[in-house]
Design a protein around this nucleic acid. Structure first.
Lengths: 334, 334
DNA sequence: CTGTTAGCGCATTCAA
DNA sequence: TTGAATGCGCTAACAG
């Protein structure tokens, strides 16, 4: 691999001059710039990014910490981040935290040792205090899908309350009155926000909120299945169910089918996330769209602007979910 | 950030000695090693990986090139790679090629500029010749899900022929005789290998292979749906269909359901990949398991052994798929 | 077992 | 506008 020195020698200028044209400094005469450029081409010279990093103290790498690499949500998020960063010539390094505090902490250490210029992370287990500490010591960080107070301008999140609201609102407008709700773990902000939206929709339509129609589950398929069983066991009337994510909706659907209950004729079902699986279920699941890819792009965009000094459009910190109507929700049978 | 120099000064030794304990050289007395270690701790010293890279010409990064980051197959593959590499303290950088030759080529360039120690790639569009060139010029490469002749020891792939064989074989043993087949693009090796396996199974059971029962499609859901329509239009008798991937099976299932054809009572359906969606379909899809996560781990394992000199178990280059029985396939109605 | 020293490839003062 | 010199933090001969 040719070095900057060989280029300089070939042209008969100093390495400083070559460095200047590499970095696009204007303080080089057009003539020498041309000579240098053609010499670089002739030698097939590429700047060594490692050496550049050592000299500039930048690595052109941004670290991304996610619970898992696979799965609909994080895969899509990574996809958005990678696309945006790559267009800007930056590298994406990732690590997984598995929603475990120890793992998340360790992953951050791991990424730190790589001298990342910025960190984009979705962490569940890490406490706000730890995030604050990281924000003040390490490289700039961006927090996904979570709002940490005091760091709002570093957070990119979904308006989960609104998502819960539009799901239930749609059912109400279709004539449903008794609407059950299968929630995620309420200790998590997104789960409780979604439920709050559900509740607000009911109130706005003068429907009283019945706690017995709410089951707290775990965001997993089996949990959704069990929650639906529990719901049926309570023998309360309801004609529709909102599930706080698509996976639980899939489980709920299984239970209903096993009981011979028809969707949407007997019971309407709505999910949340608009994950790929929602289209594969039968009937296809009505759900709330989670624009996670765009959110990933936006995170990368923030980094590009605030860390690499590129100019661009304003960053959107809170995204609004929208409704995706499919076959699993219909008018109330009443 | 403390440097190696400050550590050496604090202990009263040379930087070389500190470097030696960092790199675990035995040629350091226990006493000084201890002193150095505690000084490192006191100063919270971490070696600067960039500087190490510059000095050693290694980056501790391995580049991964996939068509897409999301999606069941590549997400799972990345997951396996990342897990294995991270345990070894290596970093994973990824880029996407979108199955387009220009993009794939560009992605390789991109990863090359980062001085990756190795490249793991799944490329569709790039010709064998280009891969050979890359293999001989750049860092060591590993090719996923494809067998490039002359580079077999650098390839990790699935025995697709066997997969096609066991799918059809299972149906034959369940009494099916007329078995249709919805294939992927036959220009791709995996698609044609799967079909070859199907054919072999038929022959071993003395069933003649009828070309009219084979439709070449595109591995996508809509393609599967259309292929099934075409199959029905031909009005040939068949009691089972093998689809060369799960997505096409999902599309085929849609078509069958729209026609009121019952699965598996009227027609049995088998997919390929064992993607998450196969469990969400109704009825749940019988399919052929593609151990892609393990294959990713194996690729990382190869890199660890052959590039970073770690010792370990032998590398498995060809993986055998296995059958996953679920509800979509049953005994022949005849 | 330890220290000295010369790079690794580049960016960036400071002079000219 | 250009060049010479210095340093980024570390490794790896070579010498002792």
């Amino acid at each position: 691999m040719a070095t900057i020195y060989e280029v300089s020698k070939l042209v008969g200028v100093s390495v400083a001059t070559v460095s200047r044209v590499i970095n696009g400094s204007t303080r080089v005469s057009d003539k020498t710039r041309q000579k240098v450029l053609s010499a670089m081409q002739a030698l097939d010279y590429k700047p060594n990014p490692i050496a550049q990093s050592l000299a500039t103290n930048r690595s052109d790498c941004v670290g991304v910490l996610v619970p898992e690499v696979h799965g609909p949500v994080f895969g899509a998020m990574l996809s958005g981040i990678e696309a945006e960063l790559r267009d800007a010539g930056k590298f994406t390094i990732f690590a997984t935290g598995h929603n475990l505090e120890a793992k998340e902490r360790e992953a951050i250490q791991f990424l730190n040792t790589r001298n990342c210029d910025a960190l984009i992370m979705h962490v569940e287990a890490l406490a706000d205090a730890s995030i604050h500490r990281q924000a003040h010591n390490g490289p700039p960080i961006l927090i996904m899908n979570r709002v940490v107070s005091g760091l709002e301008d570093r957070c990119i999140s979904l308006d989960n309350e609104h998502g819960g609201y539009i799901a239930t609102n749609m059912l109400l407008e279709m004539g449903h009155r008794e609407i059950a709700y299968i929630s995620g773990p309420l200790a998590w902000g997104d789960a409780s926000d979604r439920l709050a939206g559900h509740r607000r929709a009911l109130e706005e339509h003068d429907q009283k909120f019945d706690e017995r129609l709410v089951i707290e589950s775990n965001f997993h398929e089996v949990g959704g299945s069990e929650a639906m069983e529990e719901l049926l066991r309570r023998e309360l009337p309801f004609s529709a169910v909102v599930c706080a994510n698509d996976e639980m909706a899939a489980g709920a659907m299984d239970t209903l089918r096993a009981r011979g209950i028809s969707i949407p004729d007997d019971i309407s079902l709505v999910g949340f996330d608009n994950a790929p699986l929602s289209r594969y279920l039968y009937p296809k699941l009505s759900t709330v769209n989670y624009p996670i890819t765009e959110m990933g792009r936006m995170a990368a965009h923030w980094v590009l602007e605030n860390v690499y000094g590129q100019s661009g459009t304003a960053v959107q910190h809170v995204f609004k979910p929208s409704l995706v109507m499919r076959a699993s929700a219909g008018r109330s049978p009443n």
